[in-house]
Design a protein around this nucleic acid. Structure first.
Length: 427
RNA sequence: GGAGAGGUGUCUGAGCGGUUGAAAGAGCCCGCCUCGAAAGCGGGUAACCUGCCAAAAGCGGGUUCGUGGGUUCGAAUCCCACCCUCUCCGCCA
C-alpha cells in the first residue's frame, strides 16, 4: 500500500506507473471521493470541536449547580449531525482503503520499463550447461524410470497437479530442504521458523495477496482461513503491528513450508512433470531492514539464493524483471533461473524482491530510529531460497546419466547417504 | 466444547462517566556532573486523519485505551455482541 498523501500529491506519477506496469486504476474516481471525504471531515471536525468545548462547559456549570438543559439539548442535535457525517465518512474511508489496496507498488527508478518477460534484463550467468553424450530426457521420464516419482498414484490420491515422491525421491526432497535451511541458518545469518501453513485473511491482506489474488489460493470453506501460498505471508506477519528498535535491524529470517496454489488460469501451462503444482515445498528468506539498507540487502539476498545453486553445481542466471513483469508488492525484483537440459532453457527457481515500505505500511511494521526520532515504516524483502520441488527437477535433469541413474551432488550426500540414485533392476 | 480472569503507549502497569493522550516506573534521546563511565540530577519521548503551507518545519482541529455497536451534552471508564490471551475441566496427535 502506498501512502495516501503521496498518491494524492502525485497522481501523475501513479498514472505513469500503472501504465508501465500494465494495470488500470480509476484515478478520477479516487480524486472525486477523496475530495468529498476531506470536505466532510472538515465539517465533522468543526462540529466535534464545538461539542468538546460545550461538554467541558456543561461539566463546569453542572458542578456550579447551573441549569444545563438548553445547551445539552442543542448538543444532542449536534451529535446526531456528527453521527450522520461520520457514517458517510466511514463509507468513503472504506472505498479509499479498497482503492489503495489495489494500487501496486512504485517500481524503483532503476527498474527497466517493459511489457512482459521478454523485456527483462539478464544480469549475470554462472557455470555452464552440462554436456551429455546422449539426449537428456525430461525429469518426469527420468524420475519415473528411477522409481522416485509416481504421478499416476498422485492423481489417484488428490488429482492432477499433485506429486507423489517415492523412496530416494522423497529423501531427495527432504535433503534439499535441510541443506537449504542449514546453509541459511549456519552461514548466511538467518533465523529459522516453522510457521502455520494455514493463514488468516488479515495476514494475506497485509502482504498484498488479498484482495487481488483470492482466485490463486485455496480457501477453507466457511472459515477465515486459507492454505498459505508462500511463507512470505507468515514471515511478514511475524512482526505485524510492531515497532522494532533500529539496532535489531536488519532482521533476517527464513522458513520451510509447503505452499498451496490453485493455479487458476494456468490451464495448459507446464502440464507435464512437476514444475507447476498445487502443493510444493519452498524455503523462504525474508528481511526487515532500515530504508537505506534495503537495496544492499536485496543484492545479498540474491547472492544467498545463488550460493545454494552454486554449491549444487547447477548452471543458472540472474534476471532483472521489467515493470510489466514484476509482482504487485515489489519495487524491484530479481529472478534466478536454473538450466533445464530437457528444454534447453532456463526455469525460474527463485524470485527476490524489495518491497520497500509497501508491505510494512499495510502490515503496520515500523522501526524506532536510534537517534530517538519519530518511528517510520521499515523495508521488507523476500526471496525463495529455494523452491525445493523445482530444485529437485533441476537435479534430476542435470545429473541424469546414460543408464538412467541420477548422480547426487557432493553437498547433498551427507543428507542422502548415497552418491547416486540407481535404476531399479528390470527397468 | 464448558467455567473463570483479562486485553491500556516501545515495555511493565495505574485509572473504572467530565482539563486523562492517558498516573507511576522501565527503556530510549538530549543536557549537567565526570579524565571517561556508572550512579545522580534536569528536560524530552505515540500513531493516524485533517486544515493553513509550494514543501519541510511548525501551528490549529479531530480520532485512537482488543474490534464493532449502544447509552450520554460528554465514555479508557456504563451496556451488548464479537475476537484474542491466560488459568481450570473435558477431548485429542
Amino acid at each position: 500500500m502506498l501512502d495516501l498523501s503521496f498518491v494524492r500529491d502525485h497522481v501523475d506519477v501513479i498514472r505513469k506507473m500503472t501504465e508501465d506496469r500494465g494495470v488500470s486504476i480509476d484515478l478520477d474516481a479516487f480524486q472525486s471521493f477523496d475530495g468529498e471525504r476531506r470536505r466532510l471531515i472538515t465539517e465533522a471536525d468543526e462540529l466535534k470541536a464545538r461539542r468538546n468545548r460545550a461538554s467541558e462547559d456543561i461539566g463546569r456549570r453542572k458542578k456550579a449547580g447551573e441549569d444545563i438543559s438548553g445547551l445539552a439539548a442543542e448538543m444532542k442535535q449536534t451529535s446526531q449531525r456528527i453521527k450522520q457525517l461520520d457514517e458517510r465518512i466511514a463509507e468513503l474511508d472504506e472505498r479509499l482503503r479498497q482503492f489503495l489496496l489495489t494500487v501496486p507498488n512504485l517500481p524503483h527508478t532503476s527498474v527497466p520499463v517493459g511489457h512482459d518477460a521478454r523485456d527483462n534484463i539478464e544480469i549475470r550467468r554462472w557455470g555452464n550447461p552440462p554436456t551429455f553424450d546422449f539426449t537428456p530426457r525430461p525429469h518426469w521420464e527420468v524420475a519415473e524410470k528411477a522409481g522416485i516419482l509416481d504421478l499416476a498414484r498422485a492423481t489417484r490420491i488428490a488429482g492432477s497437479r499433485f506429486a507423489l515422491y517415492c523412496g530416494l525421491g522423497a529423501r531427495l526432497e527432504r535433503a534439499l530442504a535441510n541443506f537449504f535451511l542449514d546453509v541459511h541458518t549456519r552461514e548466511h545469518g538467518y533465523t529459522e521458523f516453522l510457521p502455520p501453513f494455514i493463514v488468516s485473511t488479515d495476514s494475506l491482506t497485509a502482504v498484498g495477496q488479498l484482495p487481488k489474488f483470492a482466485e490463486d489460493m485455496f480457501h477453507l470453506e466457511g472459515t477465515d482461513w486459507w492454505m498459505t501460498p508462500t511463507a512470505e505471508v507468515e514471515l511478514t506477519n511475524l512482526h505485524r503491528d510492531e515497532t522494532l528498535d533500529a539496532d535489531q535491524l536488519p532482521l533476517r529470517v527464513c522458513a520451510w513450508t509447503s505452499c498451496f496454489r490453485s493455479e487458476a488460469g494456468a490451464a495448459g501451462k507446464d502440464t507435464r512433470g512437476i514444475v507447476r503444482q498445487h502443493q510444493f515445498q519452498k524455503v523462504e528468506m525474508y528481511k526487515f531492514t532500515l530504508p537505506d539498507q534495503s537495496y544492499a540487502e536485496l543484492e545479498s539476498l540474491v547472492r544467498d539464493a545463488e550460493d545454494l545453486l552454486q554449491r549444487l553445481g547447477l548452471h543458472h542466471r540472474v534476471v532483472e524483471l521489467c515493470t510489466g513483469d514484476m509482482g504487485f508488492a515489489s519495487a524491484k525484483t530479481y529472478d534466478i533461473e536454473v538450466w533445464l537440459p530437457s528444454t534447453g532453457g532456463f526455469m525460474e527457481i527463485s524470485s527476490c524482491s524489495n518491497c520497500e515500505s509497501f508491505q510494512a505500511r499495510r502490515a503496520g511494521i515500523r522501526y524506532r530510529p536510534k537517534s530517538g526520532g519519530r518511528s517510520d515504516y521499515l523495508h521488507t524483502l523476500n526471496g525463495s531460497g529455494l523452491a525445493v520441488g523445482r530444485t529437485w527437477v533441476a537435479i534430476v535433469e542435470n545429473y541424469q546419466q546414460a543408464d538412467g541413474s541420477i548422480v547426487i551432488p557432493e553437498v547433498l550426500r551427507p543428507y542422502m547417504g548415497v552418491a547416486r540414485i540407481p535404476v531399479p533392476v528390470g527397468k
